[in-house]
Design a protein around this nucleic acid. Structure first.
Lengths: 348, 348
DNA sequence: CTGAAAGCGCTTACAG
DNA sequence: CTGAAAGCGCTTACAG
């Protein structure tokens, strides 16, 4: 016998009818007050609100969903291995939804699963969703986008890759951001700058690589494939990539990793080999995750406005907007101690 | 005009009545099949299930909540600044709830807020919750526990401090765990072992301090208040505590921090002062968070079964249990490179 | 094993 | 500005 049985816990719950009786109005009028509709006299409104507060009345979401055309409920879909990323995406979306009177369902999904589209549509039906927020890489599943479009269901994407210009979206400029990091390293005198891109499944990987390359070439530095070793956004992959780069040729004086986890991996490899950072090797990351400030030396990185992207996504979908359907948010270079002038002490 | 208006998206949604019509039975029979009730002939069941699958029918959660006595919906309350902790607590609870057919609402709260109890009870009413999972420090709010008890609402607590023996709970033994870490350090020859406890608001802080102290005294090593400097579980506070410890007297040969964030902070301070870890100073953490493996050298720490604690909490509340109402999960010491033999090279 | 009736607590659409 | 009726899509309690 499980603990949930019995269910006598609905005891105290008042309903709209009890409120209306005490306030001396019809329950329809209480409904008007609750929904902030026009055409309620100031005095009636005040009286109803007083009773609502006194009884601690909260309308049943289930009844509203069933009777009304809107559920005031949306879901955030995510499938990201980074606790840091998920935490902040959740926080941003949650905050804006709460402010706007929506409940947000936080829904982890498996973007590789065959049944993904069916599962999401099941959620849409069961929960009567009014809309969806998609975070990468759920943003890249064409069949899901098609199903949502066919259904006419509103959704916003955060940092989408495919169909980037279509529909509602919030993004940052990965290309420009990667150029900034690269420019910072070039400015410190580095010429042999290695880059560790992320996995191909993420659009951000290709965009950051492109920014790195464009900036190099803008400064007349030839792109050298020997300085590129891909990772998969994990710490371990960053470590392995750094090992290959340090063993390869040409020897880099700086490593720019596509995210902070990989930068931390590269940094660990430098420590393991007694390579001084930044005196012998500069290392830069991307994201400005919690990790960036927790390693030694703290990482130079590019702050991605994760929380803001999710906040703005919710706002774009649920708020009162006339301005547009796409929003590009600002990033910011964070210079810390892991980058410094080139070749103070060459690697031996 | 916002994107959500219009709401023509319910178009395709089939109902239980349409299913029943196609299957040639009453809609009550469909309901029986959906709820896995007895007394449905095998053939009828099969026919209904076939139609359900073909139409991709999903029952409205709202209608079930309204008509039934159970909502099949529970909430996880959390108020923890650690993305790592929140991510794994969510994952564990989410998994078990999904397996058992419950929807889990992930609800961040402000445990310091005056209106907390009212807000939670509002959630209970609005969402018709069948139960709640409380994670630290939400577990410690007596007024909330009282309100839930008064309402007769089932809840489980993860690692509770107050009223620890009462009600449903999953925990780990912080005292024994801290003793294990301390024993490891003593076994390496350390005698001047500093400890950085967390904030007093968390019960785990006091328990880990107690374990540290008990183990020392069990080995005939006097407890020295000069080797205790408190932090608040943050990286920065760990760094500051380490600074004071390294400047104070007696000089520690090992530092045991109450969590990994503070251990990482202590490690950064050692790097800043060019103190070799572990040759001159051993550092141990607690949690085995992602951080533990991302810093250099990787931290010796104690694995707290965060995900399992949440999984078991959901299971305890929703599953079929007869065994008991409290569950103590196992922890595990993870020895990595940040700890080593004492005084190989004394700090100068 | 199966079904017809009543009702959950609200919103909608229609009156006045 | 306010109200009475109908109904959302299910489960419950009662019959057969």
């Amino acid at each position: 016998m499980d603990a949930i049985r019995g269910g006598e816990h609905m005891t105290g719950r008042p309903t709209i009818k009890e409120v209306s009786k005490i306030a001396g109005v019809s329950f329809k009028t209480v409904s008007r007050v609750l929904n902030n509709e026009k055409h309620v006299s100031e005095e009636t409104r005040r009286r109803v609100e007083e009773v609502v507060a006194r009884l601690n009345f909260r309308p049943s979401q289930a009844a509203r969903m069933l009777a009304g055309r809107r559920s005031f409920q949306v879901a955030l879909l995510y499938d990201n291995p980074s606790p840091y990323y998920v935490y902040h995406i959740q926080a941003g979306a949650q905050q804006r939804c709460t402010e706007l009177g929506y409940r947000l369902l936080l829904q982890p999904v498996d973007s590789q699963a065959a049944g993904l589209v069916a599962d999401v549509m099941a959620l849409v039906d069961e929960a009567h969703l009014d809309g969806l927020i998609l975070s990468p890489p759920v943003t890249e599943i064409a069949s899901l986008l098609d199903a949502l479009d066919a259904r006419g269901l509103p959704y916003v994407r955060i940092a989408p890759g495919i169909r980037a210009g279509a529909g509602l979206a919030t993004t940052m400029d990965d290309v420009a951001a990667a150029r900034e990091v690269t420019r910072h390293l070039i400015g410190l005198g580095h010429r042999a700058i290695a880059f560790i891109p992320g996995p191909e499944s993420h659009v951000s990987s290709a965009n950051r690589l492109r920014g790195y390359r464009e900036e190099l070439e803008g400064h007349g530095i030839a792109f050298d494939p020997g300085l590129i070793v891909a990772g998969d956004y994990s710490f371990t992959s960053g470590s392995e990539a750094a090992r290959k780069l340090l063993d390869g040729s040409p020897k880099p004086t700086a490593i720019f990793a596509g995210n902070d986890d990989m930068a931390a991996g590269a940094l660990a490899m430098a420590h393991e080999r007694d390579i001084a950072v930044p005196d012998q090797l500069s290392i830069a990351g991307f994201d400005d995750s919690d990790l960036a400030k927790a390693v030694w030396p703290p990482l130079t990185t590019l702050r991605q406005p994760v929380r803001e992207l999710a906040w703005a996504a919710a706002d774009l979908m649920l708020g009162e907007h006339t301005l547009g359907s796409q929003l590009v948010l600002n990033h910011e270079l964070k210079v810390r101690m892991s980058t410094g002038p080139a070749r103070v002490k060459p690697i031996t």
